[in-house]
Design a protein around this nucleic acid. Structure first.
Lengths: 349, 349
DNA sequence: GTGAAAGCGCTAACAC
DNA sequence: GTGTTAGCGCTTTCAC
């Protein structure tokens, strides 16, 4: 029969199983795929023999023949960024549960690498692609080509409206609304906003959410309370300086994201302002440092793992309905942001 | 020109190129692979036509035939853990530069999932595997099988001595030595160590590094200065309580990792101990919160990106020399830890 | 319920 | 330098 050494060194194929059981490769293939036309006994026999010989289906051959690779391509800017590591966690976990493997590619925010990623994925005949667009990318023809080639594509977090494809993102507007309203409810009266570059949709949506929360609570919007920052610790610090230079400074602020909030807190501390007693702060992103700084930073969680999960599920349904012309093309999932209330917004004293 | 099947699947094959140029598929294949036996003109002709038709090599077919997939499998506990996200960054970047794709799998610290990952990789006929062992894993037969099957394997960060295979890890002993000596040089006299579970090699190595640094600097080791923790913020806090309960407490401590150091700092602050003026602290890992807490935490960087890069390079050389019987089996790379001096160990006043 | 035969798209041995 | 032929290991008609 077979020595252990033989089993380990030579690849076992369906032909080996077929030979040992006096069957044909076709039957073995069917049995391994639980084809109902094969008798229960044969199926059992084949599967037992496969186990015994430590057979493993050759995915290359199988995919080549069937046209389905059960592999998806994932493009993220960088695995080093917490946010994306976390989304990838959600994607891989869900993909794995569904029998899919993921090929990971990092764009490093470069369009050229993004194109290379798509090339690689197409070569590998992935069943679909999950992508978060690189910052550098302004021309989307490589994504458009995927649509033309009928390759399932789902954007997550960073989407683009020129490409009509399903997507998953967080509700920035709502997150900002919740954050701002939280400060109001905690008793802060004059609430500012440290903003980010407004040509980026994410940041303008947060500004709008902030404004609307004020309006909904009968508070007049004051242009002077919006500090136009650039998403950095430094811009948070400058915002603190700016606010305290005003004749009547705000007593709280919603920062466009956590690094800005961190800078704001540092700046306020330098001015000996007590947080949250004299000034409340809420950020956005739930960065890992939030709960470790002093005071711990209230923030809006972006549901990263959930985002990965939803993105995969969306892609999976796209794959399933690929040729059915089902109009899934306008399927956009918007996730609910979650307020994490920590020390920095505990209320005025 | 194009068959219906091609229009439907949108795939151009070497046969299409061959037909259009009155060549055979073999010649086209050779030309695309820059085979020197093909004339320069033909090669150019073929490559131009390939571009024109937007041909992309089918990696499945190519790998199936050639036996080389140019794909490697990567097992990490979780992409959500900063450390591993960062290592994956290093791996993917280097792999990509070398024309390799990576399939990512998360073990979630479970042996069963680890086995599934290996199964998947074997099925996908990866050229090699990069793995960081799951915490749960005590039986390594699935890794041993890879060795028997002659599948190139490299461990990173979490290694096991039972399996003889190349590996990359950080020098824990040296990192601890550097951290401890740094505190001595900064003028702290009585230096403690908040330890982790000592049955884990990483942590016992750090304890040894700490001890040796004391010895090398002529300081007597005092058992009472070692607090046996469990790698958590809580154990850091308890260590602070413990140290301050001593008749003559230490004036500095090297914490086994950053969360312990964070807890230590929090605990010391609660006791109104000034850091670094009255007490110096150094951690290990260079977590992302280190530079954002107050005081910022001095730590030992683990060279995560470099680790990924080295791991891939090691795997690549294993793949290249696979059948040459080159004794690469005892190749263990140990990375130099790097001290990051921040506020928490700035020196006594 | 199983077998025979035909590829999926590519590469590689062997021709000439 | 290029063509011919034969698969890689699998799935999938089409038979019976």
């Amino acid at each position: 029969m077979h020595t252990i050494a033989q089993i380990l060194t030579n690849r076992v194929t369906i032909h080996d199983i077929a030979r040992e059981l006096n069957l044909t490769a076709a039957t073995v293939s069917r049995a391994l795929n639980n084809n109902p036309r094969i008798s229960t006994e044969t199926t059992q026999l084949v599967q037992d023999k496969a186990d015994q010989l430590r057979y493993r289906r050759d995915k290359l051959a199988s995919s080549l023949r069937s046209g389905q690779s059960h592999t998806i391509g994932v493009i993220i800017p960088s695995a080093q960024i917490n946010f994306f590591g976390s989304v990838v966690h959600g994607i891989e976990t869900t993909a794995s549960e569904n029998g899919y493997s993921i090929i990971l590619y990092q764009s490093e925010e470069k369009t050229a690498i993004e194109k290379k990623a798509i090339d690689t994925f197409l070569s590998a005949r992935v069943d679909g692609i999950l992508a978060s667009i690189a910052k550098e990318t302004v021309n989307f023809s490589h994504y458009a080509e995927l649509k033309k080639r009928n390759v399932p594509l789902v954007f997550f977090d960073r989407i683009n409206d020129d490409i009509e494809t399903p997507s998953v993102m967080i509700d920035d507007y709502k997150g900002a609304f919740i954050a701002t309203e939280h400060l109001i409810k905690k008793g802060y009266k004059n609430i500012g906003h440290v903003s980010g570059p407004l040509h980026i949709k994410t940041f303008s949506a947060r500004l709008n959410g902030y404004k609307e929360a004020l309006r909904a609570n009968g508070i007049d919007f004051d242009e002077a309370f919006v500090y136009q920052g650039d998403v950095s610790i430094e811009s948070g610090k400058k915002a603190a300086d700016y606010y305290l230079s005003l004749e009547s400074p705000p007593d709280a602020a919603f920062a466009v994201e956590d690094f800005t909030a961190l800078g704001l807190i540092k700046g306020l501390k330098e001015h000996k302002i007590k947080i949250p007693d004299e000034f409340g702060v809420v950020g956005f992103a739930n960065e890992s440092f939030d709960e470790h700084i002093t005071p711990s930073l209230s923030s809006i969680d972006q549901q990263t793992v959930e985002m990965g999960k939803e993105a995969f599920n969306l892609l999976k349904s796209l794959i399933k309905t690929r040729n059915c012309n089902v109009m899934l093309d306008h399927n956009h999932i918007v996730l609910e942001p979650i307020l994490l209330c920590r020390e920095s917004s505990a209320g005025k004293k």
